[in-house]
Amino acid sequence: MSDGSEIFLLNLRVNGRAHRVPVSADDTLLDVLRRDLRFFSCRETCGLGLCGSCTVVVDGRAVSACLAPAFTQDGCEVRTAEGLEDTDDLHPVQQAFVDEQAFQCSFCTPGFLMSTVAMLEEDGPADVESALTGHLCRCGSYRQIMAAVGKVAGDGRDGTGE
């Protein structure tokens, strides 16, 4: 039950570690991740949930952190791109993005990575186009991104356009 106060003590786990952050009704999950906890892979481009730059995985699902009111995320398990790799090895999705060089400026990259990770963990190699709709890459690296995602999803797509 709530106490109807103007400050809420938000408990959440990020990449396996517990955090407690006081938030107001104006704060989003993006504010908490960037401003308070310094997970800079979560980035704002549109602030409207349509570009995908701030995509994180919450309780197993891809969400736009910019659209998630912080106090509604109490008790959630959040994953960001910083938490994907092991000590030495990149996550297979990260490795595929490196192998296919699926980025230019890479500002959008963590968002694409997290949507891909969520898609693979939820459904296995499912409909890649559908999972990546709503992700903007202004550099236009889409074909390489599709090649990378296709590679980990195992559909053998070729993004080179040669």
């Binding site: 892979s41 979560c42 791109a81 910083e82 994907l84 990149l90 990260q94 490196v98 980025f103 990259t109």
Partner: peptide
């Protein structure tokens, strides 16, 4: 710097 770009640490 590809690695920094996919870990979001860039």
């Amino acid at each position: 710097d590809a690695r920094d770009r996919v870990t979001g640490r860039i």
